[in-house]
Design a protein around this nucleic acid. Structure first.
Lengths: 183, 183
DNA sequence: CAAGATATGTCAACATGACTGACATAAATT
DNA sequence: AATTTATGTCAGTCATGTTGACATATCTTG
């Protein structure tokens, strides 16, 4: 049936592109890691996507719930930095989660303009269910990997992340800035 | 300014959810890997996203171009399997790439119903530019990791991917089925 | 050969989650 | 008192996904 040509790209030419742009230097590319990341992430988020349908939620709701649960008291502005979306876009999703009782807001103590976000028990349950699915996949993938190997994987993933202009959550993860995450 | 509570979740309660659903068993979760994957992938695809704007394309175009370039002669049906989208959705993106000369179709030799897809030099140049950005990030992230470490990372990513019902590209990557990728 | 299955393409309607721009309110800062 | 900041909201648009229906060419099968 299906007959892919396995010659791994660049069959047509490895010379010049249409506008004099050089064609990809295939040999130098990390096609392996690029594609593994694509498929690994596709299936990784796929776990949660399926479960979210039952709640009438999408990926956007998951991301918001996750970070609100993990970093209690997160401000709206912090969430915008982490998710890298606009407040209008966040607004809709956040409103739903508030209305349906997955998240509550508390006015900031020092700055009463701030709306600090917290997961309700209902929200915690949702996050836990989704994180459980993803943890199962991760645990399974790490089954035959020793602690040193896990450290290498962690090192690699950290090194893949932009370190310029880190948001508050990234500072927590990396332990930069003045504050340090209590590990 | 911003003051995240770093108590890493589950402050409100670790008991029962609203509907008797247990709250997440925080200690058992791989929050570290879950969040590292989120940020690593966000920045990984961010490289390409930025460049794609100059072409008036989006992520969807990138994914199509990538797999067409990498697996020359890919059928439309194979692409649908890999991307896990509908043909209507693929149709729009593919039509643009065909119209603008990034991809060409050739009628299948054995089965003349098939439209085998190939990247043009123009398409190759685009894929190469995007893969170059992503390769730079990967190479940088792997800088201090020895070959054994890279093998562990590869093993982990492979183990994160669903192996039931693999599409043609995954078969090529994993070397399952009768055909083996020439590595 | 006729009938059915397959590969692809297309029309129409719709949903989600992004976006920009403009504006409003309350509270903090200067 | 004036300005800035944090948040919320209205209105419109875009990209990318969806379902359902249908058309066309071609291959396969009885």
């Amino acid at each position: 049936m299906t007959d892919i040509n396995f010659s791994r790209g660049a069959t047509t030419s490895d010379s010049q592109g249409a506008e004099g742009v050089p064609a990809p230097r295939s040999g130098e590319m990390r096609w392996d890691i690029i594609e593994l990341l694509f498929f690994a992430y596709r299936d990784f988020v796929g776990d949660a996507d399926h479960e979210l349908e039952a709640f009438g939620f999408g990926r956007a709701h998951h991301r918001v719930m996750h970070f609100v649960y993990r970093y209690p008291g997160l401000k709206v502005a912090d969430l915008l930095d982490v998710l890298r979306i606009t407040k209008q876009s966040l607004g809709r999703v956040l409103k739903q989660l508030l209305d349906e009782g997955y998240i509550v807001q508390k006015t900031g103590n020092n700055d009463r303009r701030q709306r600090l976000l917290y997961a309700t028990p209902k929200g915690e349950a949702l996050v836990g269910k989704l994180a459980g699915l993803q943890t199962d996949r991760i645990t399974s993938a790490l089954r035959d990997i020793n602690p040193e190997g896990v450290a290498v994987i962690s090192q690699f993933l950290r090194a893949m992340i932009d370190r310029d202009d880190p948001d508050k959550v990234l500072e927590a993860i990396f332990g930069t800035g003045s504050k340090k995450p209590r590990e």
